[in-house]
Amino acid sequence: MRKLPLYIHRTGNYYERVDGEPPELKALVQETLGVHVRRVGRFIQLALIGAGRCAGQSLPQDTAVFLTSGRGDLEVTMDVLEQLFVHAQPPKPLSFINTVSNAACYYIAQQLKLQSRSGFACNRHFAFESALQLAVSDFEQGIIRSALVGTVDVVVPPAARHRKQLGLTENTVLGEASHWLWLGTATDQPPIGRLIAAEHHADRDALIRSIAALELPATTLVSCGQFIPRENALPLRRELGFQQAFEYREGRGYYDSQSGAAVATFLESALPGSYLLHVNADPASRYSSFIVQAALPPP
């Protein structure tokens, strides 16, 4: 079995605050991929933009695709439900087929000419963390050598309805995003960072024990995910034994898979060799963590 760390070769991101109508994405898809992708909805468009930016000019053909989302393709699912139960119209064939979440993986693999495994898996509060853990599992077993791991969440206007649907307050600022990492084991190009660990923890004690066992440097930055109340972040960081916080969510509109933004935001400004520990929690006080190290300067 191959053990971590894995190399982070590139990140690809899209984020937009949504106040009214979300921006048109067709042109951005074309700009990113160089082709016009027809008959796909917003969720798939965002997946293509994020994954395409992450892929850059090319990816190994055997790159796997791991897609996740906090809410999935709300747009196509709501459209099918409204057409059915309000307008008495059965689903159109392509709309129905696109309700499967892995439809986005299909378009990514097709556009980036990938021939490997792909899949959509999620967790209500640990969406991005869930995808990372599954990708790590495949790397550890030696099944894959290269993977795109990403998360997508869309806003379906009108904003007031979207907020209500997500259980948000009336003045919550909304955002939609697509965050991707290209992970791999190849050493033929300099990585921008390394993924050191991605783990689930049954409770807080298990989290503390697990992180302590890694003996991370005291300078490690700690970021808390969106499902840890802000007032709990400082006590948790102290309990973990670290002083410095890393903030990546400030000013960000609400979407469910914000953890996906942590890696790229950290690597954009990180000191060479520095570490980020990201921790998130769910309402049952289970925890999920991942650790990233920024690349060291070339010798």
Partner: peptide, 28 residues
């Protein structure tokens, strides 16, 4: 309005059975 996440079914089972391990919901 009843459920707007593919992860909600696993969350409901986790709560019902008090599972503490990881949960992953596959939609492929």
């Amino acid at each position: 309005s009843a459920s707007s996440s593919l992860g909600n079914l696993a969350a409901a089972l986790r709560e019902r059975f008090d599972f503490r391990g990881p949960d992953h919901s596959f939609n492929t």
